[in-house]
């Protein structure tokens, strides 16, 4: 087909603008990884020299390692908790057209709409009123609520794709509900569960608005610790932490793509 000069101008314009946006998407992540290998003592870019000193420094920074471990622990527990409760709830409401199911669906999705700081503050106020001491358990509880919408949405999307005839067949052939769930439903929605678990883990690990109110000195989590450090000074150790987080996220994304077809799951929901 003949292409007019104007059409070529169009392709060039869109291409340039899209290229710029792609660079903008990639640059900050790349910058973080590059600066983490600086040999200098400031965030000067480009780095004046190269070294692994900030990673070495990180290994002996107990005040950063402890919050990182707490964050991992909380994220694992919140992922498991929201995964089990959320998958069960999605199974209960996904195919129901009843009014109660619609109400529950809206309720379970609402933490996504509500500014999470209001929720974090409200939980803190309730714990204060009931004289419940803040602990890992109270923090995990808050994180589970925050993670639930992702699980409901992604597992729900997998369930929508599931052919209901398969379940009817299994039941009519005499399999129990539990057996049908284990041998038919679960394998078919496995990818959705893995993908949603990945997102739930990351959103707990990265959560600020709830942790801001519910994490105290004993349960300090990584994002809040890094925020506190950067509020005070532009500490280069944060670059090394960021480098570790970026690499771990990248590996996680590749794994989630490999085992859960993550990109397709994410796009579908």
């Amino acid at each position: 087909m003949q292409r007019s000069p104007q059409d070529r101008l169009y392709a060039a314009t869109i291409g340039t603008l899209a290229g710029f946006t792609m660079l903008l998407l990639l640059a900050p992540t790349a910058v973080v990884v590059i600066i983490s290998f600086t040999g200098g003592i400031t965030l000067k870019f480009p780095p004046p020299s190269w070294s692994m000193r900030w990673y070495a420094e990180l290994l002996v920074s107990d005040e950063i390692i402890q919050p990182a471990l707490t964050s991992l622990k909380v994220a694992v527990m919140a992922t498991i908790g929201s995964g089990i409760l959320g998958t069960a709830a999605a199974l209960g409401i996904a195919r129901s057209r009843s009014r109660l199911a619609r109400i529950l669906d809206a309720l379970f999705m609402s933490p996504m709409v509500l500014p999470a700081m209001a929720f974090g503050l409200s939980l803190l106020l309730v714990f204060n009123m009931l004289a419940i001491r803040l602990s890992t358990a109270t923090l995990v509880l808050g994180h589970i609520i925050i993670c639930i919408p992702y699980v409901i949405r992604m597992v729900g999307a997998s369930l929508q794709q599931l052919n209901p005839v398969l379940i009817t067949c299994s039941l009519s052939l005499g399999a129990s509900r539990w057996y049908t769930f284990r041998r038919v439903t679960l394998p078919l929605i496995r990818r959705g569960i893995i993908a949603s678990g990945f997102v739930a883990f990351l959103s707990s690990f990265d959560n600020v608005p709830v942790s801001l109110f519910l994490a105290d000195a004993r349960t300090e989590v990584l994002p809040i610790k890094l925020w506190a450090i950067l509020e005070g000074s532009l500490d280069v150790r944060v670059a090394a932490v960021s480098g570790v987080v970026v690499i771990a996220t990248l590996l996680g994304l590749i794994a989630a793509e490999r085992f859960g077809g993550f990109a397709r799951q994410a796009a579908r929901s």
């Binding site: 990639l26 992540t29 990351l202 960021s242």
Partner: peptide, 18 residues
Amino acid sequence: LLPLLTSSVVRTFAWIVI
């Protein structure tokens, strides 16, 4: 997806460097 999934503190830190 990569920036979407990377911790928001890390992405913010990148902008401090920039």
